[in-house]
C-alpha cells in the first residue's frame, strides 16, 4: 500500500515541469514545497541516498537524465523502495510512449504525462495500475478516441 503525498518533476535547472498533489495542501504550503524542494534535491550529490527527510515527512527522489522525479511520502503508510519503483515504472511507461522521453517531450506533451500518471496513481496517491502494458493500452485508447473526435469534427 502506498500513499504518495505529491509528485514533482523538476529539471536540472530547478524548473518545475510537472506537479501533482495527492494530499490537500494550502496554496501557501504548495508554493513553499515547490520552491524549497527542487534546490534541496538538486544540490545532493549523485551517490547520496535517494531518501531525504523533509518537514514532517520523507521525500523519495530519482534522477533520470536531466529530470528529477520527487515524491513526498507518508512515513507510516509508504514504503520508500516501492515509491522508487513507482517512479521507475512511470519513467519506463513514458519512455515507451514517447520513445526515449526527454524534458522537451514533457514540456510539449504535459497533458499526456499527467494522463499516464493518472492511470498509475489514484487521486489519493495510491497505486491504481502497475502494469505498463495496461497503462499504455489505456493511453492509446484515449489517443484513438481523441483522433476519432478530431476526424469527426473534420468530416461533419
Amino acid at each position: 500500500m502506498t500513499q504518495i503525498k505529491y509528485m514533482i518533476l523538476a529539471s536540472r535547472q530547478g524548473k518545475v515541469r510537472l506537479v501533482k498533489w495527492y494530499t490537500p495542501y494550502t496554496p501557501k504550503e504548495k508554493t513553499k514545497i515547490s520552491k524549497e524542494l527542487p534546490p534541496l534535491i538538486l544540490s545532493r550529490k549523485p551517490k547520496m541516498c535517494n531518501i531525504v527527510e523533509y518537514s514532517d515527512h520523507k521525500v523519495v527522489y530519482r534522477r533520470y537524465a536531466s529530470l528529477y522525479f520527487i515524491c513526498g511520502i507518508t512515513p507510516e503508510a509508504d514504503n520508500e523502495l516501492l515509491t522508487l519503483e513507482i517512479i521507475h515504472r512511470y519513467v519506463e511507461t513514458m519512455d515507451t510512449y514517447f520513445g526515449n522521453v526527454c524534458e522537451l517531450d514533457i514540456i510539449f506533451n504535459f497533458g499526456k504525462a499527467y494522463a499516464i500518471l493518472d492511470e498509475m496513481l489514484m487521486c489519493d496517491g495510491a497505486i491504481t495500475e502497475s502494469s505498463k502494458r495496461d497503462v499504455l493500452s489505456h493511453i492509446h485508447s484515449m489517443d484513438t478516441m481523441e483522433g476519432s473526435d478530431q476526424l469527426e469534427r473534420i468530416t461533419s
Binding site: S11, Q13, K15, R63, Y64, A65, S66, E103, L104, I107
Partner: peptide, 19 residues
C-alpha cells in the same frame, strides 16, 4: 552523456537552449 544518461558538453548546451 555521463554515467547517469545526462547530456554533457555541447549536447547539454543545446538541451538548455531547447528547453
Amino acid at each position: 552523456t555521463n554515467e547517469y544518461g545526462e547530456k554533457i558538453g555541447i549536447p547539454r548546451f543545446k538541451e538548455i537552449v531547447d528547453t
